[in-house]
Amino acid sequence: MGENVGMESQSQFLELSDEDPDTIYEVFEKHGWGDGLPLVAPTDKRVTEMLSGIEASPEEVLTVLPPRGGSATYRSVAVNAVLAGCKPEYFPVVVAAVKALGDQRINLRGVNTTTHPVAPLLIVHGRAVDEFGFNSGLGVFGPGNRANATVGRAIRLILLHIAGAVPGPGDASTQGQPSKYTYCIAENQKENPWDSYPVTIGVNSESALTVHCGENPHNFHDMESENIERILDKAASAMTTFGVNNACISGGEWFVILCPEHAATAFDQGWGREDVSEYLFEKARMPAGRFREQFNLLAWADWMHSLSDDELVPMTQQVENIKVLVSGGAGKHSCVVPSWGMTRSVTVPI
């Protein structure tokens, strides 16, 4: 831990009249801060504890976050992690997520300011899942787990406070979406029949984090089928819709998050995750003419523009844009998470 921890002179402080939880609520509302939910007071003691595992100076800048141009330092990130209710041991995951958001491929200015409801989905991989107690099983997208809930919330608070992605002045999202409160899951490696997702894209680290800026999950279920083709036909059905940004932007990514039972069906048939991607690339298609009926502007790859109206167009321009991983618990529900379109997912070591 660096010796600068707790250096009050380098941080802006607010004076509260008392320690009543309602007081911090009121102060934050007055400044236009917070996500509307109760907050943990970021006292110097709590912020210092949050920073206790960090060797770097608390003032070191991790990245600058648009549209506000706020400097995400270890300290300012820690303040928001405290506000969200994170335990100090979660902090490296929050830091990894902030670093990923600073990657130009994310296009965070666009993600934060678009009218689309996009939110960064955090996916935790590897040792960190068990070590910090992330839920990778039943109800993985839902409530009830502190690590998932507070790490996802910390990132939203960082986007609100440091990035300035406040609805209105910094976030033009027409309707928003519930995942703008918190959006963090974990890969279920124990029930994943394949290599961990980061390994498949060349990130070999004990723990890793993927950030994919997308819509809420689009569920698909298949309780009956004993062959993976019939299951994935439902996934393809969920993907072939004109209502998503990925319909008119061919560079968009799709995260296909299979529940363990659906993944097991694929594995038992001898399928790898790349076979799942290839199947969906071939099956999730619609005639070019139907796209042309629906959109005035199609941000398609050149080869797609040359297709005749009768020819089938895939929902993304290359098979590599269909990412497959395993998460969730017992039951036969899986989901697809379409992206905002003009963003690429990023996976970083933790």
Binding site: S11, Q12, F13, L14, E15, L16, S17, D18, E19, T23, I24, F28, W33, A41, P42, T43, D44, V47, V61, V64, R68, G69, G70, S71, A72, T73, R75, S76, V79, N80, V82, L83, L157, H161, I162
Partner: peptide, 15 residues
């Protein structure tokens, strides 16, 4: 009793 807390916004970039 008064309580002092950190501001959540941090600084703007230096540039």
């Amino acid at each position: 009793m008064n309580m002092k807390i950190h501001s959540p916004e941090g600084d703007l970039m230096d540039e």
